[in-house]
Nucleic acid binder design. Structure first.
Length: 264
DNA sequence: ACCCCTGTTCGGCG
DNA sequence: CCGCCGAACAGGGG
């Protein structure tokens, strides 16, 4: 399962290392995933620190280590995290491995659209903080959504949902799932959404985000069969409501699937 | 060979 | 200055 829910899932996987010391760090320092990061410092400074806690915001996560050391991870398109044996040997795309006495914390990102950032200081790095509310939090209100839509009134609603400064953690499949649930055509410009549609969009966004977070898991198979996600990549995917063949097109720069019968 | 892909950023244009 | 769009990034798979 991807996007905000997958980030949360992977974050919890690495939480098994909380409380333990980092004994060794293995990285592919010159790779794009470390762009603008001081890799030499990162490698040197993390050894001997203890993993204290972690937190997720949208598609990013922040790990705090003892001594004021912070690591931000973004998984991009192909990032994965898991726990392996302490004698793990990194493969070609295992760009960051944190070794502890009992295990190895592995980050693999084949395409490297993700990013690793390192920071030292008493409090979290300034770039960790944004004014964007988490969708599952009380800060994500109908008022906030209305304002965001007004600011991007000439953009297709699909592209608006992919904009991380308004819909933190929403990605391609979640955006399609939300629009299908709210019965809104992905091509519709934000300005043309009625009051009723804005309310439905708000409810659908929170519902999809919260349900996905609740189910968690490394695959999408645990989401209800009634969701669009199980149909969207099939050659002849059908609308879960009434079986209409889904339509597909590139909208907002991404492949989009929707039901021409119930989304307007 | 050519097309596709759960994401973000940058340059050009209006 | 704001916002929209397409291309680029890197690699694997159909």
């Amino acid at each position: 399962m991807p996007e905000l829910a997958e980030v949360e899932f992977y974050r919890r996987v690495w939480n098994r290392g909380i409380g333990d010391c980092v004994t060794k760090v293995a990285i592919h320092a010159r790779k794009r995933i470390f762009r603008n990061t001081a890799t030499t410092v990162l490698t040197r400074e993390l050894v001997g620190t203890r993993l204290l806690r972690s937190e997720a915001r949208g598609k990013r996560m922040l790990l705090e280590f003892s001594g004021g050391n912070w690591l931000q991870l973004h998984l991009g398109m192909t990032g994965k995290m898991w726990v392996d044996a302490p004698d793990f040997t990194p493969g070609k795309h295992d760009h960051l491995v944190l070794y502890q006495s009992e295990r190895a914390l592995v980050l693999r990102d084949t395409r490297q659209f993700g990013r690793v950032r390192f920071y030292q200081g008493k409090s979290p790095p300034s770039w960790w903080n944004t004014d964007v509310p988490e969708i599952a939090s009380a800060g994500f209100t109908l008022e906030f959504l209305r304002n965001f839509l007004d600011r991007h009134r000439n953009t297709s609603i699909k592209a608006v949902l992919l904009n991380q400064s308004g819909f933190s953690g929403i990605g391609n499949w979640m955006a399609d799932e939300i629009l299908w649930r709210a019965k809104i055509s992905p091509r519709k410009r934000a300005r043309r959404l009625t009051h009723a549609e804005r309310r439905k969009l708000f409810r659908a966004t929170r519902f999809v985000a919260r349900q996905s977070l609740r189910v968690l898991g490394a695959s999408d198979s645990e989401l209800p069969q009634s969701w669009l996600i199980h149909q969207r990549w099939l050659g002849k995917g059908r609308c879960p409501r009434h079986g209409t063949i889904l339509r597909k097109a590139r909208i907002g720069g991404r492949t989009t699937a929707w039901c021409p019968n119930c989304q307007h």
